[in-house]
Design a protein around this nucleic acid. Structure first.
Lengths: 215, 215
DNA sequence: TGATATATATAACAAGCATTAAAAAATATG
DNA sequence: CATATTTTTTAATGCTTGTTATATATATCA
């Protein structure tokens, strides 16, 4: 199943179409946001095309014409998710000069995102494809890359801290980045399990403890 | 959907049946182990009755007669899983007098279980019902209780350590237990993501860092 | 206006899902 | 041997899944 991208790359322009045929009757980005929310709540496979169509307010052929297929819709929703909910927080994490403050702030922000009252609980990238069928290769691989990218960001930030002398040069960067990533992904499961924000924040505050002692 | 338990409580006796009718043609525990393995690999919902029947070597009516329904089969498989793979490790965790050694040993053992070459990756209890449909109440609740029990064990062990003076009495036990649990559940996701055992162990070794400094 | 191009709605597709009704087979007890 | 009881097999149930063929509606371009 490969993603069909015959739609013109509108890239968020106000007048996104202006071709020859009948104009699209729905707003593509609004529909995408609705789809994102359902994928976020249910996960990739349990979110059925039928229910996606309902929340998007369109019929199946419109969905397929605009997004290719279910996998294509999900992947676009996932990129929209990343950009909308994590891009800024990650940027701040990389920019904050003090490693300990960067980690503390990042996990505090993460707890807020994972339990925002306006959105579903937990992280789409961590949770949406946990028990996905093995033949959804495209979706599996894309999500895995996304998770791997987060771990790489942790590693990059740690190497930065080594260069600035905040942690020892012989720090096991892959293992420590892996530990931070493990803790972050674990937080998504906790968020799904119905914890209060106060509880999740108290837990998230332990992330800095994973770092070596300040020197 | 409630679990039908009309089978006699055999409790592992060698001659488990000896009633009046036609004797069962398959070994119940062997079939249960096969079912467990499939639930473990695929998760609760993606493991279909059809495939369960295939790996168990029986037909659907036999499955329903012996285990009630899919939920009943899963719950029994889950209890078998806990008893078989985690009971001992948890017992050692509670028995080891030194908290730091207890946590280090537990997470080292956990890494081994989560990436054992003989079994599927990750923990059944953590992963099997992540994106489960909301109307599977019985399964959802049973699994949640199981996860909650692990967090309670962490809390209990921490209170023990307070009583023996190994950590400060004003330690935030719920938050620290939550953090350990978060890290443990995160390890299951890492195990599923294809890490090597050496990598997972290096990550798991960071769990002790979550504890307050030794006094 | 007529040709072309795109989007829409309706309805269908085959395949898979959990579960069970009915009949046949195998055992124990009277 | 006859009857009661349980398991097994076969086959079907009604429902949901992702996807698409067909026909119709609505726009632009010549």
């Amino acid at each position: 199943m490969s993603v069909n991208r015959r739609f013109t790359a509108d890239a968020g322009h106000p007048a996104e179409h202006q071709g020859k045929g009948r104009p699209r009757a729905f707003d593509r980005e609004t529909a995408l946001r609705k789809a994102l929310r359902l994928f976020w709540e249910r996960g990739y496979e349990p979110a059925s095309i039928t229910e996606l169509c309902e929340v998007m307010g369109i019929r199946a052929p419109s969905l397929y014409a605009a997004f290719g297929n279910k996998a294509g819709l999900f992947l676009e929703a996932m990129h929209y998710y990343e950009k909308t909910y994590w891009a800024e927080v990650e940027a701040r994490f990389m920019a904050e000069p003090d490693l300990y403050r960067a980690v503390a702030d990042f996990f505090s922000d993460a707890a807020k995102i994972l339990l925002s009252p306006e959105t579903p609980c937990g992280c789409l990238v961590v949770l949406a494809a946990v028990n996905i069928s093995a033949d959804e290769r495209e979706v599996i691989e894309a999500i895995r890359k996304c998770r791997f990218a987060m771990k790489s960001k942790f590693a990059e930030r740690l190497r930065l801290a080594i260069r600035s002398g905040q942690i020892a040069p012989d720090t096991d960067v892959p293992a420590l980045a892996g530990a931070l990533n493990t803790f972050l992904e674990g937080l998504s499961l906790q968020a799904r399990d119905g914890l209060f924000l106060s509880e999740l924040k108290a837990i998230a505050a332990h992330a800095v403890r994973l770092l070596p002692e300040r020197r």
